[in-house]
Design a protein around this nucleic acid. Structure first.
Length: 514
RNA sequence: GGGCCUGUAGCUCAGCUAGGUAGAGCAUCUGACUUUUAAUCAGGUGGUCAAGGGUUCGAAUCCCUUCAGGCCCGCCA
């Protein structure tokens, strides 16, 4: 059974109306790993839904987290915002409502395009609405017990100064040091490094629970039944362990069914980190991988397995594999070894499996075609030279358009040079042709005048001419690639040349043969 | 120091909570298509399932030990 089905079954068996929670802390640039969490959550949600249960997925944005430091990608003036909640820091680019929005908005768009059906919840709004008041009050009243749990679970030395709740200074807007012994609901005194003393109202957004207390508070508030989280939280003595006891002993609630997952690494680069910029951001991944394929990428392996995200040729492999699974699914026949992947394909649709096999264009082929013609219509034109596209549905066209965009994005920033080509404006300088090659090109140029300008005719004209030459097919093709794109190999010549102007092609051949 | 995860064909991974003769894709090789390159198809090669021990009629699968790699442990998915 696929892992998402196993988890879904457990959840469906133990909850009447399951609620899956997931979230993100948008303190910096969002990376591919964040996508794993969202997709894992949505996959479990749709699998539970498939079992006939009413199920919700909420997406919590930790918009009230403080900015820890001025990251390198932030302008120098952001130094002054360190220590403030990110919902109250201005947007770095000026186009969004605040800092949190700036980093999370593109990601939310991405999540939307992946078909994740979730309710977005902003943590800073929860604080403003006083949703955390009860938890904050309990945590403060039972602070001794909280500290006891912390030391017991983490095995670290007891810290009598441990603050379950951090007030925000009314003067400078940064998190300040709480004064514990005068606490009386709802007011908490504090003294700030800026010299200000004051009182924070825990019913208002005048302070924040620390992460280890906030997480279980969310479980209690929403009644979370399952939640995916990174392995950092899953470590022994980590925040899931402390949260489990906090929610039970302090708040009187229940911990969710845990779905820990391994981190995603970049192939050949290593671990990603939100506070450093990363070479491939979550947005890049979204832009270069079709959404359905990205879903599939995370679904095909167990959450416990680390993923090396390959932004190179691996992107093509995974798209091809996705298409193959799609074909198997609609053919209704596959081997046992493929069972898991076919199921991953189905879950990747989030209960919206197409009614019939979509019109597939091989992804690798698209990489070539996208380089032969501009725009989407241009691509369609080239494709139509060799293939009947009349049976394409509106959905097929949309998918193709999206894939073309992805391929272009990939070609621009991530594709290895080996797959890239562009038609040179003249015979590339430095290209030396042998006498045989020149003779071949000369006789080819003559035949090309009489050749119909379609892929098949061009292909056979070149093949026939090459076979008559001592160069043979291989040598003939090689010469053509060199004079057109300056490389030893390239896309199939028939379709490739057919996408260009006949006179241009002939002129080039004549030019090179002289 | 504590803990989690991983180790199956060159690569990416199924199979491990049904213990019963090792699987898929990619790559590679061969052949077909009277176009051998980067749109197709059909075949083939390829693994003492990290190592050792135990349970069993039988173990990739369950148990123990070891080795290797990755990662986490009051910020981080």
């Amino acid at each position: 059974m696929h892992w998402a089905d196993v988890i879904a079954k457990d959840i469906a068996d133990s909850c009447e109306k399951p609620l899956i929670a997931t979230g993100i802390s948008p303190t910096g640039i969002i990376h591919v790993g964040s996508l794993r969490e969202a997709i894992t959550g949505e996959s479990v949600r749709s699998a539970v839904e498939g079992l006939g249960k009413e199920v919700r997925l909420i997406y919590l944005i930790d918009s009230f987290d403080p900015l820890r430091k001025r990251y390198d990608f932030l302008p120098a003036e952001f130094e002054k915002y360190v220590g403030m909640p990110i919902s109250r820091i201005p947007c770095p680019c000026g186009k969004h409502r605040n800092y949190a929005h700036h980093f999370v908005q593109p990601f939310l768009d991405a999540v939307d395009s992946l078909g994740v059906q979730c309710e977005i919840i902003w943590t800073h709004e929860l604080y403003e609405e006083g949703k955390f008041a009860e938890a904050a009050d309990l945590a403060m009243k039972k602070r001794d017990q909280v500290i006891k749990i912390m030391t017991e679970v983490t095995g670290k030395a007891e810290n009598p100064e441990y603050a379950p709740y951090n007030p925000i200074c009314s003067s400078c807007g940064r998190f300040a040091k709480p004064v514990f012994d005068t606490y009386e609901f709802p007011y908490m005194e504090y003294s700030c490094t800026c010299g200000n003393h004051g009182k924070a109202d825990v019913r208002k957004a005048e302070g924040k629970l620390t992460w280890r207390l906030e997480w279980p508070a969310k479980w209690k508030i929403f009644g979370t039944s399952a939640e995916p989280f990174g392995k950092d939280h899953a470590a022994a003595g980590g925040s899931y362990d402390t949260g489990k006891r906090i929610v039970d002993e302090i708040y009187g609630g229940k911990a969710p069914y845990p779905i820990p997952y391994e981190f995603v690494q970049l192939k050949g680069v290593g671990q990603m980190h939100k506070s450093l910029g990363c070479p491939v951001t979550g947005l890049d991944a979204i832009n270069m991988t079709p959404p359905e394929v990205l879903n599939y990428l995370f679904l095909r392996v167990n959450p416990s397995r680390a993923i090396d995200y390959d932004s190179g040729l691996g992107t093509l492999d995974i798209a091809d594999e996705y298409d193959r699974m799609e074909r198997l699914y609609f053919a209704g026949e596959w081997t046992e070894a493929e069972d898991n992947s076919v199921r991953a394909y189905v879950i990747a649709q989030h209960n919206h499996v197409p009614v019939g096999l979509p019109h597939q264009i091989p992804y690798r082929h698209l990489v070539n075609v996208a380089q032969m013609a501009p725009g989407f219509e241009g691509v369609v034109e080239v494709l139509e030279r060799t293939e009947d596209l009349s049976d394409m549905t509106e959905g097929d066209r949309k998918r193709l358009a999206r894939r073309v965009d992805c391929v272009r994005y990939w070609l621009n920033g991530f594709a290895p040079d080996a797959v890239k080509f562009s038609v040179c404006g003249t015979v590339p300088p430095g290209i030396e042709l042998s006498m045989n090659e020149k003779v071949f090109l000369k006789s080819l140029s003559v035949k090309m005048y009489d050749c119909n300008w379609d892929a098949d005719s061009i292909g056979s004209t070149i093949a026939d001419t090459a076979k008559e030459s001592p160069l043979g097919l291989k040598g003939g093709y090689g010469a053509m690639y060199r004079i057109f794109i300056g490389k030893k190999a390239g896309p199939r010549l028939g379709t490739f040349l057919a996408s260009m102007d006949k006179n241009f092609v002939i002129n080039r051949i004549v030019q090179a043969s002289g």
